[in-house]
Design a protein around this nucleic acid. Structure first.
Lengths: 260, 260
DNA sequence: CCTTTCGTTCGGCATTGTCGAACGCCGTTC
DNA sequence: GAACGGCGTTCGACAATGCCGAACGAAAGG
C-alpha cells in the first residue's frame, strides 16, 4: 500500500532532511547530486522554501542552511507536548538527586526520539541531543518502550530496520531480544549495559498514558564505572518512581491498585 | 519581484503554518475552507506530509496535528545556533543574579524571534515562548536590534507591517520611533516601558557579531513595580555586560577599543 | 585571459496536481 | 431502522504546472 504522494512536496521534504543527515550547509549542486534531480528542479523548490523562511542562503558562499521557520514550527510541536510539561520538573529533580544525565524519549515509527535531556553536573559526552532519533534495540529508553508493545508491534519494530551492533554488547539476535524484553517486563525497568556506547550504562522505565499504552520512557545515563551496585539501585528506584509519577499525571491508573 | 514558487510546496507550507496560527488540531474540511482549496487537493498534500511524519492524524477524531519530524528539524536548527550555545550559560547567570526572566532574540525578516528564554523564580506570566515571533517596534529586544540597523533597513522594518498599538504606551508614530532609536544608540540599551504589555518593563541590549552587525539581543523583563530605580540600574548594567561578553565571544571587536 | 564551475533563466513538453463529482462510512435524527 | 447529513476518501479527465536540458552569466582559479 504505497500512498499517493505529491511529488514536489515529497521532494521538498527530501531536501530539508538532507540537512539533518549531512552537513548543515549545502549547495544546489550538492543537493541535485544527492537526490539525482536536475539543478533547475532543485532550484525551484529551494527558492520556494527560502521565500517561506524554511531555508536561508548564505550571501557569501551561496550555500543554503535550514531556516528559522523550522525552529518556530518545531517549538510549536515541542510546546504542545503535554508529557514534556509534566516531566520537566521531575527530570530536574532527578538530575539533582542522581547527578547524572536524564533523558525523556517518545516512540516514533520504529525508533525513539529524545524530547528532553538534562545533563548532570559531571558531564560525560553522550552523543545525544533533544530531537535526535535513536534505535530501540540498544538503548534503555527504546527497550523500556519496546517491552510494553503488542507482539505484532514488537515484531514490526525489530524487523523494520537492521539490528545494528553499536558495540560488542549490542543484542542483534531477535530471539535473544525477545527473551530480554520479557525480563524487562518482569523487572519493570530496562538496563542498557554498554549496548550503544562503550562505558555507558543506563536505566530506563516506561511511562504509561491514560489508556495504559507505553509511548514514552525516561532514563538515567552514567559512565559504567560510576554505576556501581549501590548507586545503580538508587538509579533504578528513582527512575521508576519518577516514571510512575509521570504516568499518574497522564491519567494512568495502575492495574495493580485498581479495586472496584 | 515575485519569486516563482512551486505551488504545491507553497500550499504544503500554508497548511503547516495554519497549525501555528490557529488551533493545534484541524480537519481536512477546516483546512480546505481556510485556504480555499478543494478537499481533494488538501487531502493529497496532507497525506504526503503525514506519510513523511510532518503531520499526524488522530485516529479518533481523524483530525491532524503537527508531526514529530518538525520537532526534529526544529531542534537541528536550534542546536546549530552558535549564539545560543554562547549565551546560554550567561543567561543562566543573569537570571540567578537578577531573579527575573531573561530572553535572547534574533532578527528574522521584519520581526524578532525568541530563541532562548529562562524564567526567573518569581514567575510573572509573560506571554512569550521560545520560537515565538514578536514585533520590533514595541519590545525591548526588537528595539535594541532595530536601533543598530541601516537607515534603509529601519525604514523597511517599520513600514512593512502596521505599527500595532498593544498598549496605550506603544509608539506608533514612525518619526517618534526614529527619534527614540537615536536615544537607544546613545545609551547603548533599549527600554520597553509597558509598550507591549501593561505592567511589564524590559531592558535590552544589542549583540554584535564578528562583522559588527546587530542581529540579536538579550533582555531582562520585570513587572514595572519591581523595576524601581536601584534594580533598574542593576538590570541595565548586567544586561549590557552580558551582551558585550556575548558579542566578544562572537568575534566582535568594539570600535572604541581598537588600537592599531 | 581563458577555462571551469556553479547558480540562474528559459521554453517546450509531458507529467502531475487539481478539481468536481461520486462513493462509503460513520453518527444523528425522526 | 431507514433516511439524512457530514466528512474523509477515491476517481477520472483536463490543463496547468513543474520538470528537464540547454543556454546564459557571473565568479573563481589557473
Amino acid at each position: 500500500m504505497t500512498v499517493k504522494v505529491i511529488q514536489s512536496v515529497d521532494r521538498a521534504i527530501d531536501i530539508l532532511e538532507l540537512f539533518m543527515a549531512s552537513k548543515p550547509e549545502l549547495s544546489i549542486k550538492e543537493i541535485s547530486g544527492k537526490l539525482e534531480l536536475s539543478k533547475s528542479t532543485v532550484h525551484g523548490i529551494i527558492k520556494t522554501l527560502e521565500y517561506r523562511g524554511y531555508l536561508q542562503q548564505d550571501p557569501e558562499s551561496l550555500k543554503y542552511r535550514l531556516g528559522i521557520k523550522l525552529f518556530e514550527l518545531g517549538n510549536v510541536v515541542g510546546n504542545s507536548m503535554d508529557i514534556r510539561k509534566i516531566a520537566s520538573p521531575l527530570i530536574r529533580g532527578l538530575v539533582e538527586e542522581l547527578s547524572e544525565t536524564v533523558h525523556l524519549a517518545v516512540m516514533e515509527r520504529e525508533e525513539v526520539v529524545y524530547v528532553e535531556k538534562l545533563e548532570g553536573p559531571r558531564t560525560l559526552t553522550i552523543y545525544s541531543h533533544v530531537g535526535k532519533r535513536a534505535p530501540v534495540h540498544c538503548t534503555g529508553v527504546g527497550k523500556a518502550i519496546l517491552a510494553y508493545q503488542s507482539e505484532e508491534q514488537i515484531e514490526r519494530m525489530l524487523t523494520s530496520g537492521d539490528l545494528v551492533a553499536h558495540t560488542q554488547h549490542t543484542m542483534t539476535d531477535i530471539s535473544v531480544i525477545r527473551e530480554h524484553l520479557r525480563t524487562i517486563r518482569e523487572n519493570g525497568y530496562a538496563v542498557d549495559d554498554e549496548e550503544i556506547e562503550l562505558g555507558l550504562k543506563c536505566v530506563a522505565a516506561p511511562i504509561f498514558d491514560h489508556q495504559g499504552n507505553v509511548t514514552a520512557s525516561i532514563s538515567c545515563s552514567a559512565p559504567k564505572v560510576r554505576a556501581d551496585e549501590v548507586s545503580f539501585a538508587e538509579m533504578v528506584g528513582k527512575i521508576m518512581a519518577a516514571a510512575s509519577e509521570i504516568s499518574a499525571a497522564l491519567g494512568y491508573r495502575s492495574p495493580l491498585v485498581v479495586n472496584l
